[in-house]
Amino acid sequence: MGSVVSSAAHTAVPLPAAALAVKILVAGGFGVGKTTLVGAVSEVPPLSTEEVMTAAGVGVDDLEGITGGGTAKVTTTVALDFGRITIDEDVVLYLFGTPGQERFWSMWDDLAVGALGAVVLVDTRRLDSSFGSIDFFERRGVPFVVGVNRFDGLLDHTEEDIRAALDLDPEVPTVLCDVRERASCREVLLALIDHIAARFAAQN
């Protein structure tokens, strides 16, 4: 528990037992279906918020002085989709989706802290748009599955071809999906949980 919790604990209103949160990230290139997936499974209308980044992708602290009337720094905002799934009275799952692009990696570093795992969506017509996301999670050891979003049911590659093109490790699952369908998204998320559980079991 961090200092926030302890410093105000004496004035705390008892929280419902429901209030422990976990998160799963949804990554992949532009237009692969991240926003659609989050919306398909969220129990609340999916929300979108903004994180402020400097153009160079360095820390937000560099915004210091922006109100001081000096030269305005170039900043950019990145949209962050999120949705919520209440698991039971003790656990709430949040899903976060945002573009996996190099200039956003500093934000992904923060997002990845404490995440259970990630779903990387790919569009078979533009596999390369998700390469960066796969690299990111591999390098940081974050467990992930690849969701192959079948736009219009088209699949002009075999799953093996796709795995080879993505250079996936053998243990990383791929799941064909249509992210417009809740049931299909559920299968992707279940595959992720099973993958995390298998890794966890192997380590213990």
Binding site: A21, T86, D88, A197, F200
Partner: peptide, 27 residues
């Protein structure tokens, strides 16, 4: 008041994963 999240780093456990799996299964 603020309540810190559960993280796998602090509490990696099969029980949490089973709960999440059951919850997702009800989607």
């Amino acid at each position: 008041t603020a309540r810190a999240p559960l993280s796998m780093a602090q509490a990696p456990n099969a029980e949490l994963l089973r709960k999440v799996r059951d919850g997702l299964g009800r989607l």
